[in-house]
């Protein structure tokens, strides 16, 4: 065997490449084709090249939904990462054993389906069985009230759903952080909180951005929780895509909105990567 041969044979990569092609690129191609297909009144479509669906996509109505979707996804991503970051840093300082236990619990939370999380949060925040009763009992509320549906309930559900992913993205770089860096800051007069702000967070800038992007994209595709926990004005583009595709039987319009969603998501992710790269070479 020659020394220059790669330890992993290249053909091993063919299988995932093929899977990507068949399972992602082909359906995406079909979706692109459907998005320019002509709509039939009967509920189906005919292949062709008709930009009518795109004309509907570029309307103030869809624009408003898009802005709502991006705002909700961004808000959920920032909240989830803001909670996950201190959580993960504290986790990283615990004993190996405790870390394993916490990570296992976290992974088991991942196994819960979106449906279960949605209805659990719904029950938890409901008028009859929810925390409103507890607050009323404590005297903080005059009478039990529901906190769902609404933006608060929706954010709670989305953050619950995406928190484990944020922790899992942040955990490896946090575990690799040299503890002496934070200790050095302590010996130089920084309190634990200032050490976190001036050393730990800047060192984790790339993973923080990575986790935020992951959760953002993940939440952008969420279509169940906005329906269960949100009011109609909180419905994301994904909800409307589902609505159009399944209930309105308007597949071309649904496909065109999906293409828009994908384009916006890619553009935002690309932009954030570009901004951080420029900052890195700039300083």
């Amino acid at each position: 065997m020659s020394a220059r041969e790669a330890p992993t044979p290249y053909w091993l990569g063919l299988l995932p490449a093929l899977a990507l092609l068949v399972l992602f690129l082909v359906p995406f191609g079909i979706m692109l084709a459907v998005s320019v297909a002509g709509r039939e009144a009967g509920g189906f479509f005919t292949w062709g090249f008709d930009l009518a669906s795109y004309a509907r996509v570029f309307s103030p109505f869809v624009g408003r939904i898009l802005v709502t979707s991006v705002a909700i996804a961004l808000g959920a991503a920032i909240l989830a990462v803001a909670l996950a970051l201190p959580f993960t840093v504290i986790l990283g300082g615990m004993s190996r054993r405790a870390q394993t236990v916490v990570l296992v619990v976290l992974l088991s939370a991942l196994s819960l389906s979106e449906v279960i999380i949605g209805f659990s949060v719904n029950t938890l925040l409901s008028q009859t069985a929810g925390v409103g009763n507890l607050l009323a009992w404590l005297g903080l509320l005059e009478a039990p009230r529901a906190f769902t549906p609404g933006l608060f309930a929706l954010m709670t559900g989305l953050v619950y759903l995406s928190f484990p992913y944020a922790v899992l993205v942040l955990y490896p770089p946090v575990a690799r952080l040299d503890p002496e860096l934070a200790q050095a800051a302590r010996t130089m007069g920084a309190s634990p909180l200032r050490t976190f702000a001036t050393v730990t967070v800047p060192l984790l800038r790339a993973p923080i951005l990575g986790a935020t992007i992951l959760v953002f994209v993940f939440v952008l595709g969420s279509y169940l929780l906005p329906q269960v926990l949100g009011r109609p004005q909180h419905w994301t583009l994904s909800v409307h895509i589902t609505d159009q595709a399944i209930y309105q039987s308007n597949l071309p319009f649904a496909a065109a909105m999906a293409v828009l969603l994908l384009a916006v998501a890619l553009a935002l992710v690309g932009l954030s990567l570009l901004v951080t790269r420029e900052r890195r070479t700039g300083t």
Partner: peptide
């Protein structure tokens, strides 16, 4: 007294220089 109020200087074996700062 916590470490950050002792006003000692310390050099670590790994040096612990901050890579994100000049």
């Amino acid at each position: 007294r916590p470490a950050h109020r002792r006003d000692f200087g310390m050099v670590f074996q790994s040096l612990a220089l901050f890579p994100h700062l000049s």
